[in-house]
C-alpha cells in the first residue's frame, strides 16, 4: 500500500469548539491506483488529503505515505516530493511570470542539480501537452492551460502520487476535459492518483470511489457500486450521474433497462437494446 492510514481524526478547533473535520478515517491506496474522493462541501475531503504531504499535521491516528510516517517532521521534504498537489485556482499557484521559470522554481527549491533542470522542465511540459509554451506568461494562458502548467510544476519532481484538489472546478468545459484527459494519462503511466471532486461524472473513470460525509468515509468501492446506489448518494447529498438518474426515473415510469448505466455511452446502449 502506497498510502496506509488508520484512525485519523482531525479538528480545526475554531473558537475551541472542537468539531471534528475528520472522524476516525481508515484509508488505503495501492500503488498505481486511481482514487476519486467524492463528497459535499465540508465533508472532509481536502482536510484528509492535506494530511498526505503534511500540509496539516496529523492529530490522531497513523498515516504512512510511501512508507514514510507523515508525523516525522524530518521527512517532510521527501514526503512532499513523493506526493504532489494541484489545487482549485491555478492563478494562486504561480510564482513566476515565465512558464519555464515557474516549473523550474520547485526543482531549484528541492536542490535538483542545475544541469538536470532544463530536461525535467521540457519533459514535464510535454507530459501536459504544453511543449512550446516555455517562454510565455502563465497569466496569458487559458484556464485549462494554466492548470496544466501548475501540474507540470508538480510533475517535474516526478512524484509517485499526484493529488488533484478540485482541480477542474474553475475551468470551462474545454479546460475540464483537458485536465481530466491528462489525469487518465498519468494513471496509465502508473502514477497513483487521488482526485477530489463533487462531480459524480468525474469519478466514473476512477478505480475506486471513496465517498465522504461529515468527516467519515460513508462508503468505498468501485464507481459502479457507489455511483449507481441512488439511496446512498442521496444520503450524502450527492447527485448521481445523469444516466443513473435517468435509469431510476424511467424505472419509476415502468420502463426498465437491462442494467443501470454509469456513462452516457452505456445509457444510449441500454436504451437502444430495449427496441
Amino acid at each position: 500500500m502506497i498510502i496506509a492510514g488508520k484512525g485519523i481524526s482531525f479538528s480545526y478547533e475554531y473558537d475551541g469548539s472542537g468539531i471534528l473535520a475528520l472522524h476516525d478515517i481508515d484509508i488505503s491506496v495501492r500503488q498505481g491506483e486511481f482514487v476519486a474522493i467524492l463528497g459535499c462541501n465540508g465533508s472532509g475531503k481536502s482536510t484528509l488529503v492535506k494530511h498526505l504531504n503534511a500540509l496539516l499535521s496529523i492529530q490522531r491516528g497513523t498515516l504512512y505515505v510511501a512508507n514514510i510516517d507523515v508525523s516525522n517532521r524530518e521527512e517532510v521534504w521527501r514526503l512532499r516530493r513523493i506526493c504532489g498537489m494541484v489545487f482549485q485556482n491555478p492563478d494562486n499557484q504561480f510564482v513566476s511570470s515565465v512558464v519555464e521559470e515557474d516549473i523550474a522554481f520547485g526543482l531549484e527549491n528541492y536542490e535538483v542539480p542545475r544541469e538536470e533542470i532544463p530536461a525535467r522542465v521540457s519533459d514535464a511540459l510535454r507530459l501536459v501537452n504544453m511543449a512550446g509554451w516555455e517562454k510565455r506568461s502563465p497569466h496569458m494562458l487559458s484556464g485549462g492551460q494554466k492548470q496544466r502548467v501548475a501540474l507540470a510544476g508538480v510533475l517535474a519532481l516526478d512524484p509517485a502520487i499526484v493529488v488533484f484538489d478540485e482541480a477542474t472546478a474553475m475551468l470551462d468545459p474545454e479546460g475540464r476535459r483537458e485536465v481530466l484527459e491528462i489525469i487518465r494519462q498519468l494513471h496509465a503511466m502508473g502514477k497513483t492518483i487521488l482526485m477530489i471532486t463533487h462531480y459524480a461524472e468525474e469519478a466514473v473513470y476512477a478505480d475506486t470511489v471513496v465517498l465522504m460525509h461529515n468527516g467519515k468515509v460513508a462508503a468505498c468501492g468501485a464507481p459502479r457500486e457507489i455511483l449507481t446506489n441512488l439511496e446512498l448518494m442521496m444520503q450524502v447529498q450527492m447527485i448521481p450521474p445523469a444516466p443513473v438518474r435517468l435509469y431510476h426515473d424511467l424505472k419509476e415510469a415502468g420502463i426498465e433497462l437491462a442494467y443501470c448505466p454509469l456513462t452516457t455511452e452505456e445509457f444510449v446502449d441500454a436504451i437502444c437494446r430495449l427496441k
Binding site: A242, P243, R245, L246, D249, L250, A253, I255, T264, E265, F267, V268, I271, C272, L274, K275
Partner: peptide
C-alpha cells in the same frame, strides 16, 4: 444524450435541452 441516440437511429423530438425534456421524450417514446 439526445444526439447520441439520434446517431444510433432513435429520433426524439427536436429541442431537448434540459434533463426533464429528455426524460419526458423518452417516456413518450418508450
Amino acid at each position: 444524450i439526445a444526439y447520441m441516440l439520434a446517431a444510433r437511429g432513435m429520433n426524439l423530438p427536436q429541442g431537448i435541452i434540459t434533463y426533464d425534456d429528455l426524460l419526458f421524450a423518452l417516456k413518450a417514446k418508450l
